[in-house]
Amino acid sequence: MLEQPSASQHPSRGLPVANELPDLQGWEWKLYAPNTYECGTTAVTARKRLLEESESLPGEDRFAYVISGLAEYLLAHGVCEIAVPQYYSRFHDEFDPVIAEWTIERHGSALGIDANLLEWTVRLAEGKGRIDHDALSVYLCDNRTLVVTGSRGAFLVDVAPLKQRSLDQTPPPAERVDIHGFVVPEADPDHQRGLRRFIEIFDRHAEPTLTSYKHLSDGKHVFETDTGRDVYAGSQLRHLARMTVDETDLRGAYNYDLDGDTHQSVWDSETASHALGDETHLGTVVGFEHIWTEKEHIMSNTLFELQSKAKYWCFQPRPQRYSHFDFQVGSLDGKIDTFANGS
């Protein structure tokens, strides 16, 4: 049973100072780069030492040690406490995955904690030997993290992608959002925005018509079309989320700070070399984006080259070799301005 933690339950015990960080075999703490969160919490991450045998932990940049502000972090983000089985040997039999949010982020069907991540998390906080349940607490938070406290102190751990095969549940109605008439289980705002663009593209530029939303699968949303073929919306959604359909929305000045200098580039009525719906070798132009690119030239007299660019996102059906409708989303870049050597 998951229980909502109260303020009095938020553990703040056992937080050593920076020079008393736990010794993790094969890992070193990045004390030179502490992270400070909006709620005031300070934590440090770790990295593996090269050519050394190391503890099996969630992975670099996926966990951090809490230096201070644990109670504040839990008050700001804590959702519920997770019940931990008595022994490691029972984790896979007694622990069911806990879902933080339904999303195709990181090629899963949801984000949360399963038995594998729970074991890594507990071992991180407890070290070798038996679990000290008097010291151990695991909390799910609303910002895609877990908080775990144990004999070694307190840690923040990223939740993990959960695969469809490990879940014996489907997204409840409360976890679904209406996107242009399709009810979709997707919590990530960028993916929601990408799905809006995806549906608009098929409405305006693609030959098959989307007729219904079918289901969530690992790393993709599955739609049905009037041809009977399914369409998958997956990794393209991040790209689609960044673009705008109306090129005039991008007109204006863009500033970029580099080495103490501020460079300005202007997107005006003469900038765009393609219009919405234009056909290119990468397909139909379906959106626009402004980007900056920075390059260092080590073997030349140019110390750096900074470019302001117009990006044109294109949609193109692929040869239909599969049972589903296949397509690609690519981009063309057009140079607006170039700055070099502090110019």
Rank of each mutant, 00 (worst) to 15 (best):
A253L: 02
T271W: 00
R251V: 05
N341F: 00
H10W: 02
D114I: 11
K309L: 15
T280H: 05
S89R: 15
L57Y: 02
G228P: 01
D203W: 02
T149K: 06
A154H: 03
H77P: 08
T271H: 04
L15P: 00
A71Y: 15
D93P: 11
H92I: 09
R318C: 06
Q320K: 06
D134V: 13
R165T: 07
N255Q: 01
D168S: 15
V177A: 01
A154K: 00
F339M: 00
S137V: 11
E38W: 02
L306S: 00
D268F: 09
L195K: 03
M1A: 14
P185C: 10
V147M: 07
A76M: 06
Y139H: 15
D132L: 08
S6L: 11
I131F: 08
G129T: 03
L237A: 05
F327L: 07
D268N: 14
A135V: 06
L250F: 06
E101I: 14
G69I: 10
E247N: 13
V157P: 00
L118S: 06
Y254P: 00
L117Y: 02
S308P: 04
P85L: 14
G26D: 04
Q316A: 06
A154P: 07
I113G: 03
A160D: 09
Y213G: 04
A241D: 11
D230V: 10
F288D: 10
E55L: 03
F315V: 02
H191Q: 15
L118D: 09
E60W: 03
D249W: 11
L240M: 09
C141I: 12
D134L: 14
H77K: 03
E294D: 09
G287M: 11
C80V: 04
E289V: 11
V266F: 13
Q164E: 08
A275V: 13
Q86M: 15
S89W: 13
I99M: 10
I113H: 04
R229C: 04
H221W: 08
P161S: 14
F288W: 11
L303G: 02
H324M: 06
W267R: 09
S54H: 05
D96A: 13
D203G: 01
V66C: 00
D190M: 11
E38H: 01
F327T: 03
Y139A: 05
E101W: 13
G277F: 14
S56A: 09
R13E: 00
R106Q: 15
V159M: 13
D333K: 03
E53C: 07
A43W: 00
V231K: 07
D178E: 03
Q4K: 12
A7V: 13
I113N: 04
E247D: 11
D168F: 09
V159D: 02
H281V: 14
H221A: 01
E279W: 02
G127S: 06
N116K: 11
T284N: 08
P317T: 02
L167G: 05
I291R: 10
A187K: 05
Y322V: 05
Y312H: 03
I199Q: 00
L51Q: 11
L57I: 01
P185G: 13
N301I: 08
A100I: 12
A233M: 10
P34K: 02
P85N: 15
E38L: 08
L216N: 07
G40I: 05
N143H: 10
T103F: 14
